[in-house]
Design a protein around this nucleic acid. Structure first.
Length: 473
RNA sequence: UCCCCGGUAGCUCAAUGGUAGAGCGUUCGGCUGUUAACCGAAAUGUUGCAGGUUCGAGUCCUGCCCGGGGAGCCA
């Protein structure tokens, strides 16, 4: 009902805007009218502009801001790779001056001019404009809604399709891409094969209350996956060492800065692997991701104002404490946690503040972990599980452990968890036909990227966040 | 589901129960080195919705809607 109401509101808002935004023909220039200057000069991206000092080049992008000072204009252009200031005087370039004067924010432009080092310009160089082609002028009657000033969260999320144009958001999305690339490179180099888990599933992997139910063909019900875990166990028995990387969905009624209803997980699984192997893999993976971002996305981290010295310290090995020890640490710090309690956000933050690296907590009580988790043979009340908590209070980024490989125990755990046994027959086959010890984990991409970027809220690190009561745009 | 905070111009926010305002953006004018430029002027309102109290409600009361933060749960 809430969605329906909001959708109606959005539709009327969009209709109103469309009425205001009728674009006139004279606002647009066909691309074949490119000036002779533009046709002669080489097209470059702003990130490489300093390398072209002294040369005449063409930049294609959008007008980010325009400062006017009489017969002198200072437009700032952005092209997705960065922003660069331009300068133009009425006296020297009257035609281009008129084209730029009064031009509205986010109008699309093709600009030709000479790159010059300029200490007074943000970024250290600027373009002395010789020719401008306005590809599309944003009409004054409906100016670009996002200004160069503070905005509220609700407004920005409604404008997410435009918000991602701002330099800060663009930097975050580039860091996300780098994190994904680094993670896949690391997993591939470790001999893991990428396999994909289905998005439609017949039953729950985690709790049943957080499933998104969808109508499948012919009145069947299906559910959006909460985790690729069970499928990756099957492919591990087929290929040995595997991982999935894809979206997962949880209908948790959670409104916190750490939650999305749709988020991406990287889930490795290896046959004949044990808890310690996965803790090693997890710290190696996280180190590789962080170091790759530090090395290849220094500009973006600087744009975010991130303290890179904290990230530079992130290298394996990470500190490891058992659940038993963690409870003692918390109690010593005056926290009321008792043995058997799960750790909430406060407890995680308290524990992570003890270290300047992610901390691994292992061997949680079996009662608080999922049905497929193996138990410690020496202390059956403990599970062979581990979590990795990010520093600086960014919360749990990895959860995993060794899987229950015994058929009878697994059947009993499925019954105890009130899960539909028939839906898990294929999964139980993995214990009928050549069951082996195996282990894996899930790494939450957005929480990891949020920590690396130091963002206040996880919603900024995914292009189009899906959250409780928000599926637009 | 529960607790706390909020909803006023396109945006960010003001406004002892007593004439709804400012800055930004937009429009018009000025300015040859601006840094979210600056200076001058103009236009812009169903104060989330519905009731109630009152001579009078943006302000107080009740209900509802919407959003934010957090708890539980989780990556």
């Amino acid at each position: 009902m809430k969605f329906a109401r909001r959708l109606t509101a959005w539709k009327s808002l969009l209709t109103k805007r469309a009425e205001r935004t009728r674009i006139r023909d004279e606002d647009c220039l066909p691309l074949d009218t490119m000036s002779q200057e533009a046709q002669k000069s080489s097209v470059i991206t702003i990130e490489h502009a300093p390398e072209y000092a002294g040369e005449v080049v063409t930049v294609r992008g959008w007008l980010y801001n325009l400062r006017e000072s009489g017969k002198l204009l200072f437009p700032i252009f952005r092209d997705g790779t960065g922003v660069m200031q331009g300068v133009i005087s009425l006296k020297e370039q009257p035609q281009a001056f008129e084209a730029l004067k009064g031009l509205t924010q986010e109008s699309s432009v093709i600009v030709t001019g000479m790159i010059q080092a300029e200490p007074r310009a943000p970024g250290g160089c600027e373009i002395h404009i010789q020719a401008v082609e306005v590809v599309q002028k944003v009409p004054e009657s409906s100016p670009y809604p996002i200004q160069l000033k503070e905005h509220g969260v609700d407004f920005l999320l409604d404008q997410r399709h435009l918000w991602i144009r701002t330099p800060r958001q663009a930097a975050i999305l580039r860091i996300r891409a780098e994190a994904i690339r680094a993670a896949r490179n690391y997993m591939d180099a470790e001999g893991y094969t990428l396999t994909d888990a289905p998005v439609f599933t017949p039953a729950a992997c985690e709790g049943t209350t957080t499933l998104f139910e969808v109508n499948y063909i012919d009145d069947q019900k299906a559910y959006l996956t909460q985790s690729g875990q069970l499928y990756v166990e099957a492919t591990a028995a087929a290929l040995g060492k595997v991982y999935t990387f894809g979206p997962t969905f949880r209908a948790e009624k959670s409104k916190t800065r750490r939650h999305l209803t749709e988020f991406w997980m990287l889930e490795p699984e290896a046959a004949f692997a044990h808890l310690a192997d996965m803790m090693d893999l997890g710290e190696g993976l996280v180190s590789a991701i962080v170091q790759s971002v530090v090395k290849n996305r220094a500009r973006e981290l600087a744009a975010l104002g991130r303290d890179v010295s904290k990230l530079e310290k992130i290298a394996a090995p990470f500190p490891r404490v058992t659940y038993d020890e963690a409870v003692k640490v918390l109690q010593t710090a005056g926290n009321p946690t008792k043995w058997g309690d799960d750790f909430g956000g406060d407890e995680e933050t308290l524990l992570s503040k003890e270290f300047d690296k992610p901390v691994i907590i292992h061997r949680y009580p079996a009662a608080m972990k999922a049905f497929y988790m193996a138990t410690d043979s020496e202390r059956p009340e403990l599970s062979l599980s581990f979590d990795m908590i990010a520093p600086e209070g960014f919360g749990e980024i990895i959860g995993g452990g060794e899987r229950q490989s015994d058929y009878e125990t697994l059947v009993r755990r499925i019954r105890e968890s009130s899960l539909p046994e028939e839906a898990f027959q294929w999964y139980l086959d993995l214990r009928r036909y050549g069951s082996v010890p195996h282990a894996g984990f899930g790494l939450g991409l957005e929480r990891t990227v949020a920590w690396i970027c130091g963002t206040e809220h996880i919603r900024e690190v995914i292009p189009f966040p899906r959250m409780l009561y928000r599926v637009y745009p």
